[in-house]
Nucleic acid binder design. Structure first.
Lengths: 250, 250
DNA sequence: TTAATAGTGTCTATGAGACAGTATCAA
DNA sequence: TTGATACTGTCTCATAGACACTATTAA
């Protein structure tokens, strides 16, 4: 937080700093579950000369706009809305990636967020600089030459974080349209985790966490109607109990 | 990742971008456990005019130096070494904070790392711009007027992350000098968590995780010598098993 | 009636908390 | 011998996986 200037001090706030600054961007990893598959939103980069990675697919994102964005989170929300129209989804910070070489234009640092949204609320919108916007199944991502920048690495980190947190939080509930049924929620867990989950244990666990409220019976994907549920809190995920927890608590 | 320029493209990489950039800094939250207390390293800011928050205590950190630092992580390691002399501790990214108002000098974004180090390896070093460097017990942090910038909030987030991960990882092992004994490690856990932990369960758990290797008996803090242990992997924490895990695995 | 899925009950093994008991050292 | 701490064993209980069972609907 200190400027690297040896002795001379200035009494007024810096306008143009006496040293070079890295580029600052925000990228968003947007996940959804659709047709029993985990999908991520990618944007195809413009073909214009001078643009890095022309024609390649990459995560949606862009430079922080000092006038438009009052915070990094606000910037992420803006990017998300521009691409999907979704206004207030589950949005969490993933981390930041910065180096001299990740962007051919120069030293750059990106602040990465990841968002979970239900598919149906989305209306994809191609922007001025994005030739195309599309959902990609995680198991069928574009190979050769892969994503632009270090976005392949970032997406891997996002996937790891998502799968890790799905093991002990209610995150998948943010990827379904409400009201949803417990079997639908369970399939959502199974799709992300890539393995089957026991029905009985799953139901016990979800209901015990008390983050759902009944919303009447719904005609689900089967003959027999199932109870529909809504989230008590549309923003905050529930953390299921962990190890080391004292017997009495929860 | 796209510059906000409407139609005119440039064939050469940007040197001076046509739009303002935020300041980019890296801060490090350095924790240790000493005398049965969790402590954090703070730096007193210079009193020079023009410096933000003069005389206030703050997290060690500073601007990213595009020539010195090839990556954000390298920058964090540099800050850490400058303040403590420690070269390769446990270092993990915590997150980033950025807004138009957090630094009076202008729009700024900081990338925050947190480090865990054993106290004895440290030789505190006051730098050119840091009047003083000191350890503060977490339960006795400077009040009135509190930390500079938004570092109070950042420290809270670091504490929350630390305490959360201590519940299910071997993180505290990185805060002890090797070889250490299991009772020492247990006290470390208890200090951070702020509650007692059952001895028998603790020992079973630690040894079952197989991240320690015996290093001969050590004269500990008591009459009877205890087995000393070293870390098999000095960098990677062990994650203890979680919920939702299939019976067979681990 | 059948098929299909929703939802429940029961058994069992694991693992952790609680706590008492044993081992080993200094003084 | 005493005291202090290192370490172990045993009991019990909560929970989750496994899986069989019942319930409710459409066709």
């Amino acid at each position: 937080m200190r400027p690297r200037k040896p002795a001379s001090h200035r009494a007024t706030p810096l306008q143009t700093p006496p040293f070079p600054l890295p580029f600052t961007t925000v990228d968003v990893v947007i996940f959804t579950v659709r047709d029993d598959a985990l999908e991520v939103l990618l944007v195809q980069r413009a073909e214009s000369p001078g643009e890095p990675f022309p024609g390649r697919w990459a995560l949606p994102g862009g430079f922080v706009h000092l006038e438009l964005d009052s915070t990094l989170l606000a910037c992420a929300r803006r990017k998300l809305k521009e691409k999907t129209g979704v206004v207030s989804p589950y949005l969490e910070q993933l981390g930041s990636w910065g180096s001299a070489t990740r962007d051919p234009r120069g030293w750059s640092a990106t602040h990465v967020y990841f968002a979970l949204i239900p598919t149906d609320r989305v209306t994809l919108a191609g922007g001025a600089n994005s030739a195309d916007v599309a959902w990609f199944r995680i198991d069928a991502l574009p190979r050769h030459p892969g994503l632009g920048f270090d976005h392949g690495e970032i997406l891997e980190a996002a996937l790891e974080r998502l799968r890790s947190k799905v093991e002990y939080t209610s995150l998948p509930a943010f990827m379904l349209c409400q009201p949803f049924t417990l079997p639908q929620l369970q399939r959502c867990y199974e799709v992300i985790l890539g393995r089957a989950v026991d029905k009985s244990a799953f139901r016990t666990r979800m209901l015990a966490a008390e983050f759902l409220e009944e919303a009447g019976f719904v005609e689900g994907d089967s003959n027999r109607p199932a109870m529909g549920y809504r989230l008590r809190d549309a923003k905050t995920p529930v953390v299921f109990p962990r190890t080391f927890s004292p017997r009495g608590s929860e």
